[in-house]
Design a protein around this nucleic acid. Structure first.
Length: 297
RNA sequence: GCGUCGGUGGUAGAGUGGUCAAUUACAACAGACUGUAAAUCUGUCGCCCAUUGGGCUACGCAGGUUCGAAUCCUGCCCGGCGCA
């Protein structure tokens, strides 16, 4: 296989991406760029499954801890930073390895999506949040007919963001399709890891137990008490952060119920990740063993 | 033992003579994704064929009433509560 412009390692949560990335980085003299929408935040460690210094084995890792967890980080920001890191790594004659489970972030980089730089308007969002989808849709229709035509009418979050963008830019810009075509020529190797469902379920379960033992609950409590992250914010961060926050608030009282619900939620997440990945035919689905046998020249 | 309330689809739990293969939620499965993505949203969900539609088996078990029963009656089995 030709030496790629960069390498991507993706897969559902708990599929073993981080470990593989380190091994491949050592083999190919690479450096790793995380593609994870939660690991970008400072202080989200155990719950987000951030790789430890020790696990990094001296392989440089980027785009971890680059954002304040109080503020919402966006794909647009991610894309900008990731592209910059890729350039830097290439300039050093090393192989950039993008590794993560946030499909959208990965796509933003791989296909170089055109993302409107419209910042979150919290006041606008708050006032729009009170409206139902039908009302939101009507507002969007007035602002941007094109976007209204292909948007999911039932999805308030999308509707609100579309309105936000339309208000600021007049309309929601299109993806740059040409860019995507151009990218087909770029040599990008995408490796997907996808253990069988039953195995993945087990991996998720074991990993959660491990996280609980290594202080997950304390981490979330500290984020709330010391870092002053509101419960609402923690709930919004999802999965571990959401369910531990609910548990600490006693909205879920039973520890067993808490574990079960969280496990299910993580499983649901893994499945959502897979539906996203499945449609990308460029992904080469391999086992870790197969991936380690890859040769680049 | 008597009294009483209840036993409904994988689970919880509505339904109390027809419009019920059975509200809803969860789980399960599939999917979307113009940018808050660990979020947000959608579809399917008894079985068998079918394009609308049709057939079959189902609401603890066995009988009965009725044109018609998850729904009413009788007996039995099982569980909660009360009194003994």
């Amino acid at each position: 296989m030709k030496v790629p412009h960069f390498l991507v390692i993706l897969g559902p949560t708990a599929s073993g991406k981080s470990g593989l990335a380190v091994k491949l980085a050592k083999k190919f003299d690479g450096e790793i760029i995380s593609a994870d929408s939660r690991q970008v935040y400072r202080g989200l460690d155990i719950g987000a499954g951030k790789i430890t210094k020790r696990e990094m084995q001296n392989v440089p890792h980027y785009l971890l801890d680059v954002a304040n967890p109080k503020r919402v980080f966006s794909v647009a920001q991610y894309q900008k930073l990731a592209k910059q890191k890729i350039r830097e790594i290439l300039a050093r004659n090393k192989l950039p390895i993008i590794c993560g489970g946030t499909g959208f972030y990965i796509q933003a980089v791989v296909d170089d999506l055109v993302l409107p730089e419209v910042q979150a308007n919290l006041k606008l969002r708050e006032s729009l949040a009170r409206k139902n989808p039908e009302e939101l849709f009507k507002i969007l229709q007035k602002l941007d007919k094109t976007r209204a035509q292909n948007i999911d009418k039932n999805n308030p979050r999308r509707l609100i963001r579309a309105i936000e963008i339309a208000k600021s830019l007049g309309q929601v810009p299109n993806f740059n399709k040409n860019k995507k075509a151009e990218n087909e020529n770029k040599n990008i190797v995408i490796i997907g890891l996808n253990p069988p469902a039953e195995k993945l379920k087990k991996l998720i379960k074991i990993r959660l137990e491990k996280r609980l033992k290594s202080g997950l609950i304390t981490e979330v409590r500290n984020l709330h008490e010391q870092e002053k992250l509101s419960w609402k914010r923690l709930e919004n961060l999802g999965l571990e952060y959401k369910f531990v926050a609910l548990f600490l608030q006693k909205k879920i009282k039973d520890k067993k119920e808490f574990t079960e619900k969280l496990n299910t939620a993580i499983w649901h997440y893994a499945k959502r990740q897979m539906t996203w990945f499945k449609r990308d035919e460029r992904i080469r689905w391999l086992t870790e063993k197969q991936a380690l046998k890859l040769k680049l020249k």
